[in-house]
Simulated assay, not measured.
Amino acid sequence: MVPALPVCCGAGAPSCGPGPPAATATEVTGAGDTFAGTFLAHWLDGLPSRQVLTSAVHAATEHLGAPPVPIPAQFRS
């Protein structure tokens, strides 16, 4: 089981380090899968919980800035 991490928001909240990088969402499909896959891979490797969560958030954020996957014309509505 992964230990609970503090929620970092509001005045007086504990510091959890730098937040995720800024990203403009151009492709959201698969961001949750990217987060989950990164989280599980690092967790199963036995990395510290804070590093696991930080890596997963950063991977999902980077995915948001990826170019969208082209959809073939016959499948567009």
Rank of each mutant, 00 (worst) to 15 (best):
G12M: 04
A56F: 05
C9P: 00
V57W: 02
M1R: 05
A36V: 11
P72D: 14
T34H: 08
G12Q: 01
F35E: 01
V52Y: 01
Q74L: 12
T54V: 00
T24V: 11
A23V: 13
L47G: 00
A59P: 15
V2C: 00
G17C: 07
A23K: 13
T24L: 07
S49M: 07
T29F: 13
C9T: 09
V7P: 01
P20A: 09
V28E: 06
P14V: 13
W43G: 06
L64I: 07
H63G: 02
A13H: 06
A59T: 14
I71K: 10
E27Q: 14
A73E: 14
R76P: 03
A56C: 03
H58C: 00
A59S: 13
G30Q: 13
T24Q: 04
G32T: 06
H63Y: 11
R76L: 13
L53E: 05
P18E: 06
V2Y: 01
D33Y: 11
L44H: 09
A11T: 11
G37P: 05
E62A: 05
A59Y: 15
G46T: 05
A23Q: 12
A11D: 01
V52K: 00
G30R: 15
A13N: 03
A4Y: 04
G32D: 03
A36K: 15
T26N: 12
A60G: 04
T34L: 03
G12S: 01
G65C: 09
E62H: 15
M1F: 07
V57K: 14
L44W: 09
T29Y: 15
A23F: 07
G12D: 00
L64M: 08
A36C: 09
G10L: 08
T54N: 03
A13W: 05
T26R: 15
A11M: 06
